[in-house]
Design a protein around this nucleic acid. Structure first.
Length: 423
RNA sequence: GUGGCUAUGGUGUAAAGGUUGCACAAGAGACUGUGGCUCUCUUUGUACGGGUUCGAAUCCCGUUAGCCACCCCA
């Protein structure tokens, strides 16, 4: 078959076999967020373009080439949200949440959009969940945010991820360190790759992330940022390390963990699942102390992370772990002959009203094919209504696991099923 | 955005320019009221649009989509 339409590049239909996994994970993740005291927030799918430009950073790849931006009928530039933090901060300011409480712990989940070349683990419409703590500057928050990510991954069976931890400094020490990089790289400028030449001017810190061999060679001589942090930042990072050790979360200090969004300050971290190819980051996050001010609020500190659903599911599949997903059907109603259809249909709805899952074949299929169907649906009990049963005002109840059959009075079917299925 | 690889029933795979075959899945039956196992039968395909050729799944071009690497990020 050649359908007239197909989904756009980088977008996917999540079919029942997959959506079962999605719902399971979403429930599990929401549950953990709630246990940690986070409340859900839902923000619109699109915002003014300027919000993302201001928050993510003019010079970043996301803003420069990866946004789904369009003009609406009033000639406003709008953008499909490429990430979750900026909208949350916007909502926090717009709704003046800070007047109701100094501290907010929020979580979200949903679709996000980036115009990139798709690849396994990278879609144009992808799905993230995330958490933000607004209003507290304390290493305990950073540590808890990291622990939260750790626990989510662990509780779904991904307990062998690597945690990378770093710091991008603060306005006190970052400019100084950028000078160190620039000074060190000055004499090699002509040999740098094109990207690094640009970064040299725009954002020297990003050079540390370069994969080019020549650049890497020279960058090795640059002292690690973790050695050049100001006393405050150094202490802050050390306290997070201390708390993570307390919580028995293994981590690795990465001197050059630079993230692609400009708003980060101090803490940055990433959970990596190494067997996933190039798209290995499952969860990424950090502290963003000046974003709220940048978007027009007071200077409120904040910290958060986001995790990628598609990647987590890919990792889970790679692990070949069985998820405890139940797709069993409680009851399948089998009918024989036109006469019995009505009673079967009525009974079906009664069973459902009684709180059990039930289905039937709406076609007049053979008994055999109805049973085959019941079997495929992993049915626990089959109810059979035929002419004999109709005459005697009874139905046959068959336990599909044991094969046992018994005859039951019509009036008692629902209660008998309940007795067996609902504990 | 750059480079490379790929596209055959619903799914997974064969056919080295000459009849699109197999397995699984799906449907019907093998007992005139009973599923899983077995057996039989049936349905369904060369991604789309051009070109080369007597003849194209096969060669060429374009489109679309997927994959891989770069880039970036969740």
């Amino acid at each position: 078959m050649n359908p007239k339409f197909q989904s756009l590049r980088g977008t996917n239909d999540i079919l029942p076999d997959e959506s079962r996994i999605w719902s399971y994970l979403e429930d599990k993740i929401s549950d953990i967020f709630r246990r940690f005291g986070y409340q859900e927030i839902r923000t619109p799918i699109f915002e003014r373009t300027e919000l993302f430009v201001r928050s993510i950073g003019q010079a970043t790849d996301i803003v420069n080439k990866e946004m789904y931006t369009f003009t609406d009928r009033k000639e406003r530039s709008l953008t499909l949200r490429p990430e979750g933090t900026a909208p949350v901060v916007r909502a926090y300011l717009q709704n003046q949440l800070y007047t109701k409480d100094e501290v907010w712990k929020l979580y979200y989940k949903g679709p996000f959009f980036r115009y990139e070349r798709p690849q396994a683990g990278r879609e144009r419409q992808f799905h993230q969940f995330g958490a933000e703590v607004l209003g507290v500057m304390n290493p305990a928050v950073d540590a808890e945010i990291i622990y939260l990510g750790y626990l989510i991954l662990k509780s779904i069976g991904l307990d062998n991820c690597e945690l990378l931890l770093g710091s991008v400094g603060c306005p006190v020490c970052r400019p100084g360190y950028e000078k160190v990089i620039v000074a060190e790289m000055k004499e090699h400028y002509s040999e740098l790759c094109d990207d690094c030449k640009r970064r040299y001017k725009d954002n020297p810190l990003r050079m540390l992330d370069c994969k080019n061999d020549t650049c890497k060679k020279y960058l090795k001589k640059v002292p690690a940022f973790t050695e050049n942090l100001c006393e405050y930042c150094k202490n802050y990072l050390a306290k997070i390390e201390e708390l993570l050790k307390l919580l028995e979360v293994p981590f690795e200090i990465t001197p050059n963990l630079v993230r692609g969004l400009d708003y980060y300050t101090h803490t940055t971290f990433e959970f990596i699942y190494p067997h996933l190819g190039a798209q290995a980051t499952l969860i990424g996050g950090g502290r963003y102390n000046h974003l709220i001010e940048e978007l027009g609020g007071e200077d409120v500190p904040a910290c958060g992370f986001a995790g990628g659903m598609e990647r987590i599911i890919a990792a889970l599949k790679n692990e070949k772990k069985q998820l405890p997903i139940s797709d069993e059907l409680d009851v399948f109603v089998v009918h024989i002959g036109t006469e019995c259809f009505k009673s079967a249909f009525q009974l079906l709805q009664k069973i459902r009203s009684g709180g059990m899952s039930a289905d039937m074949d709406y076609r007049e299929s053979s008994l055999k094919s109805q049973f085959r169907r019941a079997d495929r649906f992993k049915t626990r009990y089959v109810i059979i209504i035929g002419e004999d049963e109709l005459k005697n005002r009874t139905a046959k109840l068959k336990n599909m696991k044991t094969g046992d059959e018994e005859s039951i009075k019509s009036d008692n079917i629902v209660s008998e099923l309940k007795k067996r299925l609902i504990k």
